[in-house]
């Protein structure tokens, strides 16, 4: 079947098997190998990308289901040569070791901070709870996301959750 998916702002039309998983479409057909595959059962989150604005496990989404939709992957976090605060946070706080879980973790973190710019540590842990990291014990991943939250608030005080507000972002 023929599908058209807007991936990281660029439109791709491909002939695919109906059973093709989105993760394999991204990795094998489009060569976007930043998103990883780590399990057979939708447990690890190494494959998390955005379908429109929502983080999804791309191993559990058929490429066909993305037909006509927008997909955002880790390759699109850095824009115009500027790293996303989440990417900066992961480097600043040693939020990654082997780097295999990192793209999925960062995509979920970015989505969290878009919805709740000023999360608590517990909210960060909850948001990442569908994903597995085998290297960091999560300690520094949580710190990385909180660092990103603080950094973007600093950079844009007008943003909800910034220092001008009461510190509680939208639910």
């Amino acid at each position: 079947m023929r599908i058209t998916v807007i991936v990281n702002g660029a439109s791709h039309t491909r002939e695919v098997e109906p059973r093709l998983l989105l993760i394999h479409f991204l990795r094998d057909d489009l060569g976007l190998t930043g998103s990883h595959w780590g399990c057979d059962t939708s447990n690890c989150g190494a494959c998390v990308v955005w379908l429109d604005e929502t983080p999804v496990k791309s191993c559990t989404v058929l490429a066909a289901m993305a037909d006509g939709h927008r997909v955002r992957t880790v390759e699109d976090l850095e824009r115009g040569g500027v790293l996303d605060p989440v990417q900066q946070g992961f480097t600043e706080c040693h939020g990654l070791q082997c780097g295999f879980c990192t793209p999925g973790m960062m995509m979920t973190a970015r989505a969290l901070l878009d919805r709740n710019p000023n999360p608590t540590a517990a909210q960060v842990r909850e948001a990442l709870s569908g994903q597995i990291c085998r290297c960091t014990g999560y300690e520094n991943i949580v710190r990385s996301v909180l660092w990103a939250s603080a950094r973007q608030a600093e950079a844009d005080p007008a943003r909800p959750g910034g220092p001008a507000l009461d510190g509680r972002g939208p639910a």
């Binding site: 390759e75 850095e78 990654l96 780097g99 960062m106």
Partner: peptide, 11 residues
């Protein structure tokens, strides 16, 4: 980290 945070590692 520079490559991993960009999804540019080579596994």
């Amino acid at each position: 980290d520079a490559r991993f945070i960009r999804g540019a590692g080579t596994f």
